[in-house]
Design a protein around this nucleic acid. Structure first.
Lengths: 388, 388
DNA sequence: ACTAACGCTGAATCACAGG
DNA sequence: GCCTGTGATTCAGCGTTAG
């Protein structure tokens, strides 16, 4: 194993010291995991050395197998700096597929049963990756389009401007209870559901890492905003995120900021140096800023009967639906009565409407302080009053 | 062969009479082609009866293999009318792949050497289609994202809203000198290169074909605007366009309007009837119609969360109103926190003032480069920095 | 006649804990 | 495993009805 244990512990302590969020109420991380480190060498070998079912989320930005032709020049004659690195060269689709199956097999072994994986790519490779993911039993949850706000134009005018890349988000299996922070995403998008198309600028300006000569440190550095949204949406603080193609460490930098643990694999020493310095500089958010909007699902449950027994709703009170079509009476045990029929706020609501189900909390209304309100509003007041 | 020659000739004459574009300077069409007709029956059998290397462009909207679970209800209890047709049922990915290879093999035989093919799909099938296209020697030119202006929401809040579909555009081979009307696309897009992401509304309202009972005639009818752009971009007037999964004939209707020949394959008699009547009614293009099809440039909407994830506003930053009466803290998901209360910039602004609503963009201020500014000013800067 | 409110719907792999 | 009860969850556009 390529990991020096002393380094690992130091690294983890340092990270914990800065990211307070990791100290309180976080699930324990498998102590044998080399967390918050870059594992040097081939990602498949490095992954083989990690324990099974130990990773919460994998973000992978594999080689795209671009198959570029000759040099490309802009209309003004200047040269386009293309991806010509050796790591992007494969002999055939079959060779690329074999490589993909190999690293995905290890990824699958490392994921916890409820874990999920993200893979980003372009039309050169993403169809192969997607089909292989499905063949291996991963369950695709969404394909996400990163719509680039400022893509490179098509200089020759021979095709449509290639203005997007595709991300696939898949759980380990169809049965996985994957993490999706629905409320956080909705909040991030001004109270509208987050869609499958994301408009984000490419990585440029200050954010783009450069060497001393001003050349870009990595040809395909991803913007932090992209990783930020991915991680905020599909991980929790304290989770372990693995990036098998770490490059200059965008995944690590964002994980540190967001209070997630990270592990990166990278074989090019030049990238590793840049990544380590970069992540060292990254500042973790404090616990308050890290908090996100929680979905109602995770709030403590309140039974309707509690409102009755604690006096917020009086037995005998009358509930009605929004339009006053149905009226029911509240009984002492928290059941409601409609004619001869009685049952829960949900069951009776469903029965009266002839619907398969009904959320009684939002269906039924009551007069409270001169106003007709959803009984859900009283539940909120009850929660506020009984908190702590 | 399922074609009655007399019908074919009549049909073609009628079409030529209406579409003037076909009369002048058009290349001759293979006279053995059953042009401007619907071929009844299984598309693979019908395609086998057509001559090799006779088709300029193929547009295919194959079954997506959706694999839906049980019933789905909206939050208001109403039922979602899903695609449950037999034609979308496959036993396995392998069965779907075999079907795909079979129809694509015929498609490939029919295409002229410089011809191209479009296939539309969703994440359920498009990765398999793309990989098979590559394996068969097609050469992918672009993947195009149809960003739906008005997609169906994710009712249960379990994933990102599935707001797009993907089209693959591929030439018959790497060497093909395919058709791409660069100028037409640039004009259609207000003198900017046409990008690989297209914002178009789904097919609804008057355009959506319905039976006498008001039910939709086809569960997955595509908008004409989509076919319009596809055909305008990658065919010339007088070209022959084949659609192996013709359905209610959107491809035929748009081809007729744009002065292209068309051939459709369809096995469901119900769809054929609707399609024939529809295409009969379609009028070759006049200028007014053209105008309404032009790209509607949508206002870029910026969510407060975008400023946070892209680093314009740091989580933990403090916002205040103009007079400094209220102070709030920004959290990682773009929500803001005032004491124990948290919510959107608009909601919290309204709540603190006791107002029914509040424009958070102009209400909240932040210090930026030594000055206190409305956060709306940062939004303007963000827009400037990220605009195309 | 004009506006507001309401109803309907679209290629969707759409819950989960507890017994 | 299955079954049952609780209760969480929607956006834009079009057409019709109410005011």
């Amino acid at each position: 194993m390529a990991v020096v244990v002393k380094e690992r512990v130091q690294s983890r302590k340092r990270s914990l010291g800065k990211a307070k969020a990791l100290q309180v109420g976080m699930p324990a991380v498998d102590p044998s995991l080399p967390v918050n480190q870059i594992l040097r060498g081939d990602c498949i070998e490095q992954m083989r050395a990690l324990p099974t079912a130990s990773i919460d989320m994998i973000f992978a930005d594999p080689p795209y197998n671009l198959q570029l032709g000759g040099d490309l020049a802009r209309p003004d004659g200047s040269h386009v700096d293309a991806v010509t690195n050796d790591w992007d060269k494969f002999d055939s689709f079959a060779a690329y597929d074999a490589f993909t199956r190999e690293w995905l097999a290890e990824a699958r072994r490392l994921l916890k049963p409820d874990g999920s994986i993200w893979v980003i790519g372009s039309y050169h490779n993403i169809f192969r990756v997607g089909a292989i993911l499905q063949d291996m039993g991963f369950w695709i949850l969404n394909d996400i389009v990163w719509r680039k706000a400022n893509p490179m134009p098509n200089f020759k005018g021979t095709r449509f401007t290639n203005a997007h890349e595709t991300l696939i988000w898949a759980s380990r299996s169809e049965k996985s209870k994957y993490t999706f922070n629905y409320r956080a995403m909705k909040t991030l998008n001004d109270e509208l559901q987050m869609r499958s198309d994301w408009v984000l600028p490419i990585c440029s300006g200050q954010e783009r890492l450069r060497n001393k000569r001003g050349a870009k440190a990595h040809p395909t550095q991803k913007p932090e905003s992209l990783l930020y949204r991915v991680m905020l949406a599909t991980t929790n603080p304290g989770d372990v995120v693995l990036d098998p193609f770490f490059g200059t460490g965008t995944t690590g930098a964002v994980a540190k900021r967001l209070g997630r643990h990270w592990i990166g694999c990278e074989r090019e020493e030049g990238y590793i140096e840049v990544a380590e310095e970069r992540i060292e500089m990254a500042l973790p958010l404090d616990e308050t800023a890290l908090k996100t909007m929680q979905s109602r699902k995770s709030q403590p449950r309140v039974a309707f009967g509690q409102l009755v027994e604690s006096g917020w709703i009086r037995p005998g009170a009358v509930l009605s639906d929004r339009k006053g079509r149905y009226c029911v009476t509240v009984r002492a045990d928290g059941s409601i009565m409609a004619g001869d029929d009685s049952g829960s706020i949900h069951g009776i609501g469903a029965k009266l409407q002839g619907a398969p189900s009904c959320n009684g909390w939002t269906f039924w209304h009551i007069e409270h302080e001169g106003q007709v309100k959803q009984i859900d509003a009283l539940r909120q007041l009850y929660l506020l009053a009984t908190e702590d």
